[in-house]
């Protein structure tokens, strides 16, 4: 089950990281706005919540950690 979750997290990471940079920026997150039923404010909140070290970019590790926390709830 752990591996399935990681695979899913990575799929989602790739949806956000459309250019395949290997990290997600605020702009990448805001680009999802037309596709997801979340406001820009909510997307910003998601970004800040996932960006554990606050450096302005989300690594696959930060993204996966956030996803696993959600998954375990």
């Amino acid at each position: 089950p752990g591996l399935t979750m990681l695979g899913k997290a990575y799929e989602f990471f790739q949806i956000c990281d459309m250019e395949g940079k290997g990290f997600i920026t605020r702009q990448d997150m805001q680009r999802l706005h037309p596709e997801l039923p979340l406001s820009l404010e909510e997307l910003e909140k998601v970004f800040v919540t996932l960006d554990a070290d606050g450096n302005g970019s989300l690594t696959p590790k930060e993204f996966t950690t956030g996803f696993s926390e959600f998954f375990l709830l």
Binding site: I15, L38, L50, E69, F70, F71
Partner: peptide, 29 residues
């Protein structure tokens, strides 16, 4: 505790975000 409230809200937004991604993956025709 305001911090706990903020945490709960973040969790709600995160859940909303990931659920939306889930339905985006599976929901489109």
């Amino acid at each position: 505790d305001p911090n706990m409230k903020a945490g709960a809200t973040s969790e709600g937004v995160l859940a909303n975000f990931f659920n939306s991604l889930l339905s985006k993956k599976t929901g489109s025709p």
